[in-house]
Write a protein that binds this DNA or RNA. Structure first.
Lengths: 186, 186
DNA sequence: GTCTATACGTAGATAGAC
DNA sequence: GTCTATCTACGTATAGAC
């Protein structure tokens, strides 16, 4: 059943946003899907396989978004807003960004996963850099000498906002968005 | 031995910055200290007790810093710089902020710890708010209507910078500092 | 593809000797 | 205060029946 496989990955993705890679257990997954642990092991022999599959999905998602903004005519601000709305705003109040979840577990990750976390982190950096560089956009590119610094700042803000949102139950996301806009507009 | 107790807390604090609350094990601690698990359980019967002790130390540290900046005459920028240098810059390349480490584990934390994480998070917010409000400082207070938004942004940036530093091995901290300064100076 | 059964490691925690 | 020994629960993972 191909459907079961994607079902597993989707659930794992949700759990990674909620609890992180290490805290995901085959027991969790199997109970929530109404199958046995062995059944999950059939689809993903080792936990690392599941981890890689799940991160592949995150990457695909980012790649699609990158294509979208490369082929559409929007201002830098519009693209950035679209990124917020697509990638961060939809997350529920007990979820954080899957990439920052993986980054947090960094010290406990097996090597293959760790490498993939680096790849994913860098890919997201690339997406935001592309947005701020605004190659096809209608507005002149950001004038700041240090786009790199702005990129890391933007992503750190978004990821941090989700952490605070979950821990304190406050809508920190919209707060930091105002500050991100100030930085980008300069 | 009172010393052993603080020794345990200090090691646990280091481990929490490296791996997080859930990943800390009595086995880890005991082996690194050259004692048995039972011995650690004598000082901290349950893991939650150790967690609370360790977070108490983080809070003490913040309280001391708050006192310091309240009683000294510095500009907002100087205070903020001092905060970077004292609290974030000294962390080694495989350590993240202990508070964000705890926030990341939020879904897996026992209730007592969770509540304390909220307290700690809010206390750090208060420290940065105090800095930016600049009650006794030499410069006029930040004019931005939304100090709260700046505070969350500053902290998110710092925490995110440490995550990226560890995962990618880049000095992201100094990159985001430049952007924080831009925000604060406005 | 999914199951039962099981192996093996390690986690947090406790009892009782020294 | 620290030890040995042990308990129970849960983690990943595998073998083999259906």
């Amino acid at each position: 059943m191909k459907n079961r496989k994607t079902q597993i990955v989707d659930l794992a993705l949700q759990l990674i946003r909620e609890k992180g890679y290490v805290a995901i257990s085959y027991d969790d997954l199997s109970k929530q899907l109404g199958v046995t642990k062995a059944s999950i092991h059939y689809h993903f022999e080792k936990k690392e396989d599941l981890g890689l599959a799940l991160m592949g999905k995150v990457q695909e998602n980012l790649e699609q978004f990158l294509k979208l903004i490369k082929s559409s005519v929007m201002t830098v601000e519009e693209k950035l807003m679209l990124y917020f709305e697509r990638q961060y705003a939809p997350l529920s109040s007990d979820e954080i960004c899957p990439i920052s979840s993986l980054q947090s577990d960094f010290a406990s990750l097996p090597d293959v996963i760790r490498v993939k976390v680096q790849e994913l982190s860098e890919f997201e950096i690339k997406v935001i850099t592309t947005i701020l560089t605004d190659e096809q956009g209608t507005k002149p590119a950001n004038q700041s000498k240090d786009i790199e610094a702005v990129v890391y700042t933007v992503l750190s803000c978004l990821k941090g906002a989700l952490q605070y949102k979950r821990a304190l139950g406050k809508d920190v996301l919209s707060l930091v968005q105002t500050q991100i806009n100030r930085l980008v507009k300069s």
